[in-house]
């Protein structure tokens, strides 16, 4: 993506004003996946001067600034396992030092591993104007908010883990899966190759096959829908067999 101008506002208000007043403006998170898009925009709004890179370890939830990089998540040491594991093979360290969690979420990238993790954790997104939106609602909708993502709230859970299947180490996932259990059990599936979605009807008696019957899988260059579904089943079975999800 090309920009005629890039601004670096020093406050959220200023940033929002740019966004509201320029029709062809785009918020720049990490900027890495934006680069791949063949578009031209008048104005790029760089959020890197807004102190949005932080991970706060609260009592019941984590607050993660939108400009926190995937590498920061990987090395945080205390974030839920499914988050930490999910980012480990997103490109190399150099890429993860640039890609931001906010950019991944707002781009709604279907190949994203972190989005599946966030969905499985029941994360909530905090926008500057519109306030709080559940990750699930945001990913599910087709609308793009003309707003600025400030932070992501991740509830603390008792247990979480994730799996993904990649042809090579740094490849996009053929399919990914992430689970968590706290107040309730959540199972998310991504790179189907569509966006990450939650398994809605969850019951301890469900087999991985029954759970995944609810999810739609399709073909792309990385594999067929049938193969994706099968791999997801293998990964989910493995998670269920560990026996930690229902504890």
């Amino acid at each position: 993506m090309n920009f005629k101008e890039i601004v670096q506002p020093s406050s959220l208000e200023e940033a929002y004003e740019f966004l509201a007043n320029h029709q062809k403006s785009v918020i720049i998170g990490g900027g890495v996946f934006l680069r791949l898009q063949k578009r031209e925009a008048d104005l790029g709004i760089d959020l890197s001067h807004l102190s949005l890179s932080y991970i706060n370890n609260g009592a019941r939830e984590y607050h993660i600034g939108a400009m926190t990089t995937l590498r920061d998540i990987e090395t945080s040491g205390f974030l839920p396992k499914c988050m930490v594991e999910s980012v480990r093979q997103t490109g190399g360290v150099g890429l993860r030092n640039m890609v931001t969690i906010g950019g991944s979420v707002c781009g709604k990238y279907p190949f994203s591993d972190i989005n599946t993790a966030l969905l499985s954790l029941g994360a909530r997104l905090i926008f500057f104007k519109k306030g709080e939106i559940a990750m699930e609602r945001f990913l599910g909708g087709n609308y793009m908010l003309n707003d600025i993502l400030i932070s992501i709230v991740v509830p603390k859970v008792d247990y979480s883990t994730c799996r993904y299947f990649k042809h090579t180490y740094t490849d996009f996932s053929l399919v990914n899966i992430s689970v968590s259990s706290g107040e309730n059990v959540r199972i998310a599936v991504g790179a189907r190759p569509g966006r990450s979605v939650l398994v809605q009807d969850i019951n301890t008696k469900h087999t991985s096959e029954e759970l995944l019957d609810q999810i739609e899988f399709k073909d792309d260059i990385r594999g067929s829908g049938a193969y994706r579904r099968h791999i997801a089943e293998v990964m989910l079975s493995e998670i269920l067999e560990e026996g930690l999800l229902w504890k």
């Binding site: 042809h167 090579t168 490849d171 260059i221």
Partner: peptide, 23 residues
């Protein structure tokens, strides 16, 4: 891989997968 109209799908390192040092 080519589409039926001759477009090369694997035209970047994102889609043409060479082994990394992990493979």
């Amino acid at each position: 891989k080519y589409t039926s109209n001759g477009h090369l799908i694997n035209n970047s390192f994102l889609k043409y997968k060479v082994p990394t040092r992990m493979e």
